[in-house]
């Protein structure tokens, strides 16, 4: 007894786009306060390292000057931080405080659309933050164009990767402050132990397997390969790791978050 057989629901790609569009509009509404810091942060880093710390480090790292070594690493850490914040604190606030999802889920969107759209948005933010770092690095001649123009794509993958893991963590969180553990226990160590600040090859052997497990390691290796335009078999492994990580963690993140949104 269908009363109206001509209901046209928006197609899948559109539903994902509309969620992405929502986040983009809210983010770009304060373009100055949201858009400027991503450019300022690498600038400060470069000043600190280039004028200060870097002058003490004369040894080259993996064949790169320290400034270039750290700079290329920042391309992905910037993406990591922004995506992690967006999909932990951001997601939690939308879920529990602002009740944004309650309204969105009353429109023709499924929970899966909503979460996947948000993950794609976090990837986009990763891309943008990566791009901002790239601009600064290029302006100061730290890295070389045009190959490194592809680096923001790695930023996108990094963003998606940290979006899914952050969402999975958020799905367990009952009180927002618990997220602090995620940042001090997971994200911050990632910054130091995945080859961004110093090469991991010199770490003791028994730590090496651990380094391979850490997600950011693969992003860092990939982005350096992109910037140098020098690819090896190991980078296929990195891509494979990233793809599997996104699919597996993403699957559980969606499943667990759905239970928080539809009960």
């Amino acid at each position: 007894m269908k009363l109206n057989n001509t209901v046209v629901c928006p197609p899948l790609y559109w539903r994902l786009f509309s969620v992405w569009y929502r986040h983009m509009r809210v983010y770009t509404k304060n373009i100055f306060s949201n858009g400027l810091p991503p450019f300022l942060e690498p600038l400060l880093f470069l000043a600190g390292v280039g004028l200060g710390l870097g002058t003490y480090i004369t040894q080259s790292m993996e064949g790169l000057s320290y400034l270039e070594f750290l700079g290329t690493g920042l391309l992905v850490t910037a993406a990591m931080f922004t995506a992690s914040f967006e999909c932990s604190f951001g997601t939690f606030i939308r879920l529990e405080f602002d009740k944004v999802y309650d309204g969105m889920l009353a429109s023709p969107l499924t929970v899966n659309n909503l979460i996947v759209g948000e993950i794609i948005w976090a990837g986009t933010k990763g891309l943008f933050f990566s791009f901002a770092v790239l601009c600064i690095l290029a302006v100061f001649g730290v890295i070389h164009l045009p190959y490194s123009l592809l680096a923001p794509l790695v930023g996108f993958l990094t963003g998606v990767m940290f979006a899914v893991i952050s969402m999975l963590i958020t799905s367990f969180v009952r009180v927002i402050n618990q997220l602090n553990f995620f940042f001090t226990g997971f994200i911050s160590p990632m910054f130091f132990f995945s080859g961004v600040v110093f090469p991991t090859s010199n770490l003791p052997n028994y730590i090496q397997p651990l380094v391979e497990i850490v997600p950011l390691t693969h992003c860092v290796r990939l982005v350096r390969a992109v910037c140098a335009n020098h690819y090896q078999m190991i980078h296929l492994w990195d891509l494979f790791y990233i793809a599997v990580f996104i699919l597996v963690v993403g699957f559980f993140a969606v499943r667990r978050l759905r239970k928080r949104m539809v009960n």
Partner: peptide, 18 residues
Amino acid sequence: ELEIKSLSGVVPQDNNLD
């Protein structure tokens, strides 16, 4: 759910505006 939501409008208990 999509068909139903396409045909309906919902005013939730909380005002969740941006």
